[in-house]
């Protein structure tokens, strides 16, 4: 993120309450993640310690510190989805995309394919339990998902076997 864009974001958040989270949220929305250089620049500009910003960015699951792919796939791992076969969905995704998901040391599960087309994440609940198991790709929700549906769904986002 360039300095001017960051300045514009900072200028939009002048109220002290919720300021840092507001700014971090906009950075996350625009870049898809929170780049290290941006966080360091923000720390200088606001006179807020980097440790505080880093603490916030790692605390909230809304922020990611690593770049994500063109399409973000979020698999719901809430209780209902888990019972209805979310694990099978996740495993099928791993197979199709050729990735291995693993919990990183920050406790988040987020894997990106080598070609940077897809990122697979998990969520704890979408609140769409009636359609379990659910997955979301770039904000579009897919309910009653089965591993067999996945190639078709992924095909909508340019996936080819």
């Amino acid at each position: 993120m360039d300095e001017r864009t960051l300045d514009a974001i900072i200028a939009r958040h002048d109220a002290p309450a919720g300021r840092l989270l507001g700014i971090l949220g906009e950075i996350q929305n625009q870049e898809g993640y929170v780049p290290r250089e941006t966080l360091e620049l923000l720390s200088e500009k606001l006179g807020v310690r980097l440790s505080q910003l880093y603490g916030l960015a790692t605390f909230y699951s809304y922020f990611t510190l690593r770049p994500v792919g063109d399409h973000v796939i979020t698999v719901c791992m809430g209780t209902a989805c888990h019972v209805k076969g979310a694990v099978a969905i996740l495993e099928a995704l791993e197979g199709l995309l050729g990735i291995k998901s693993d919990v990183t040391d920050d406790g988040k599960l987020s894997v990106t394919t080598i070609d940077r087309k897809f990122t697979v994440e998990i969520a704890r609940c979408f609140g769409a339990c009636s359609m379990a198991p659910v997955l979301r790709i770039d904000g579009n929700l897919y309910g009653y998902a089965t591993p067999e549906d996945l190639p078709v769904i992924l095909g909508e986002y340019g996936w080819t076997p």
């Binding site: 790692t58 040391d105 406790g107």
Partner: peptide, 25 residues
Amino acid sequence: AGAINFINRGPYTVVNTPYYAPSRD
């Protein structure tokens, strides 16, 4: 100084410097 802080949350919480890099603060 504010060189260190809590990182992550829940069972993954640790205390260290940002990005686990040597701190300038």
